[in-house]
């Protein structure tokens, strides 16, 4: 398969899944006039303390079953963040398939950089 098409499809799929989750979350948020025990007024306040730091992956997955709007939205955002990372992994595999060794090395380095940034840098900074 053509590499450009494959990568384009990976990006499009990620965007569509993310968009669907965010749209469902938005509808739930308005329908319930709130989410996760917070009222709408608390959530839309510009200085609201309802943000990513109080949500965990496990909590969000649970939130999907109890139809909590904010959990759907944040999960959609996570899918969006994972999309470019998935496209880097896809590029590694495509370059392997093309036997373009120089670019296999280059894309693997980019992938390692991303992993360091996500898993090691926050630890060094103490977050």
């Amino acid at each position: 398969m053509d590499m450009d098409k494959l990568i384009s499809n990976v990006l499009r799929t990620g965007v569509i899944i993310s968009l669907i989750l965010i749209l469902i979350g938005t509808v739930l948020l308005f329908a319930d006039n709130g989410s996760n025990g917070f009222t709408m007024a608390q959530i839309i306040n510009v200085n609201s303390k309802i943000n990513s730091s109080i949500f965990s992956i496990a909590g969000m997955v649970n939130g999907l079953f109890s139809l909590q709007g904010a959990d759907f939205i944040l999960l959609g955002i996570i899918v969006l963040i994972l999309t470019p990372i998935t496209r880097v992994i896809t590029s590694v595999l495509s370059f392997l398939y093309e036997r373009n060794w120089l670019y296999v090395i280059i894309t693997v380095i980019v992938f390692i950089d991303i992993m360091v940034a996500i898993f090691i840098v926050p630890v060094i900074l103490g977050h």
């Binding site: 959530i43 309802i50 990513s52 904010a70």
Partner: peptide, 9 residues
Amino acid sequence: WSLGYIQPF
């Protein structure tokens, strides 16, 4: 994410 910069609404 961990600093809480992402506000769902």
